[in-house]
Design a protein around this nucleic acid. Structure first.
Length: 235
DNA sequence: GCATTAACACGTA
DNA sequence: TACGTGTTAATGC
C-alpha cells in the first residue's frame, strides 16, 4: 500500500526536533528510543487514512503535512497543517478509535511514529509528558473553537493570515520559528484557496508589513497582527 | 464581483 | 533543469 514510504531508525540530529523528549528521564528516554521509528514520505503520500486503526502517535520531524477530510461532493476540508515539531493522533489513540481524517504529506517529509504502548507508558509515568499533551490539547481546542467562530466569515486575506498564524503556533509546532518554510502552493492547500489568490493575499500582508515574502519562505514580522487583518479596498 | 483555472514569463536553487 | 513566483485572460458561480 505504501511502497514509496521508507521506514528507518531516527537519527541523532532528528532527536532535536522532538520537543517533548527533553522532558523525560534518561530511563524513559531510552525506552522511547527503542520503539520510535521514522517514515520518509513523498509529496502526496498518506501517513494515515480515515478509518485506519490507531496504533501510533505521530510527529513531524521535518516537512509539512495536512490533516483533512473529503466531502461527498469531492471537496476537501482541511482541519490543520502540521509542521516540524507538531504531533498528532493522540486523541484517536487514547480513545482507541479509528481515525476520522486523512493525513497527507504536502512535501517530502519525515514522520516519527511512537507505538501506542510506549505512548501509554509515558502518560502513566511522566507528569512532564502529560503536561506536554495537555498543553497541546488545550491549544488545539482553542484553534478549533476559533475556527468555528470565524472561519466562514473570513475574506481570503484573513484566511491566509489565520492559516499562517496556526502554522507558527509555538505549542503545536514548537520547531517552527518566525520563518515559515512553505511554498505558496502548499499554503493554498491548507487555506483552501487557489495559489494565485494566496499570492495576492500574501502581497497584501507584506504591504502591511506583517510578513516578508521570499523564495519558499514567509517571514512573520508581526505575529500579533495576523489576528486582525482589516478588510480593505481592492486595486 | 470575486475566485478559480490555465497559461506564460521570469527568477532561483 | 525543475520548481516557485507573479501576472493576465478566460470562465464560472
Amino acid at each position: 500500500m505504501q511502497a514509496r514510504v521508507r521506514r528507518r531508525p531516527i537519527s541523532e540530529q532528528e532527536l532535536n526536533n522532538i520537543p517533548w523528549l527533553s522532558r523525560l528521564t534518561d530511563a524513559e528516554r531510552s525506552c522511547v528510543l527503542e520503539k520510535l521509528y521514522v517514515l520518509d514520505v513523498q509529496p502526496g503520500d498518506f501517513i494515515l487514512h480515515r478509518g485506519d486503526t490507531a496504533r501510533n502517535w505521530f510527529g513531524v520531524v521535518d516537512g509539512l503535512l495536512k490533516a483533512a477530510v473529503e466531502t461527498e461532493g469531492g471537496d476537501t476540508i482541511t482541519y490543520t497543517g502540521l509542521g516540524p515539531g507538531g504531533w498528532f493522533g493522540e486523541g484517536t489513540l487514547l480513545k482507541q478509535e479509528l481515525f476520522g481524517y486523512n493525513v497527507q504529506a504536502l512535501r517530502k517529509s519525515s514522520v516519527a511514529c511512537l507505538p501506542y504502548d510506549t505512548f501509554k507508558l509515558l502518560l502513566e509515568h511522566s507528569f512532564p509528558f502529560c503536561w506536554f499533551i495537555m498543553d497541546m490539547f488545550n491549544e488545539r481546542l482553542a484553534q478549533f473553537m476559533n475556527t468555528v467562530e470565524t472561519d466562514r466569515t473570513l475574506v481570503p486575506e484573513q484566511r491566509v493570515a489565520l492559516t499562517i498564524k496556526r502554522l507558527i503556533n509555538p505549542v503545536l509546532s514548537p520547531m517552527v520559528g518566525n520563518e515559515l518554510q512553505i511554498t505558496q502552493q502548499e499554503l493554498s492547500y491548507l487555506a483552501g484557496l487557489s495559489r494565485q489568490r494566496v499570492n495576492r493575499a500574501l502581497q497584501h500582508l507584506q504591504k502591511l508589513g506583517i510578513i516578508a515574502i521570499s523564495y519558499g519562505t514567509i517571514k512573520i514580522v508581526q505575529p500579533e497582527a495576523l489576528r486582525n487583518i482589516k478588510t480593505i479596498d481592492r486595486g
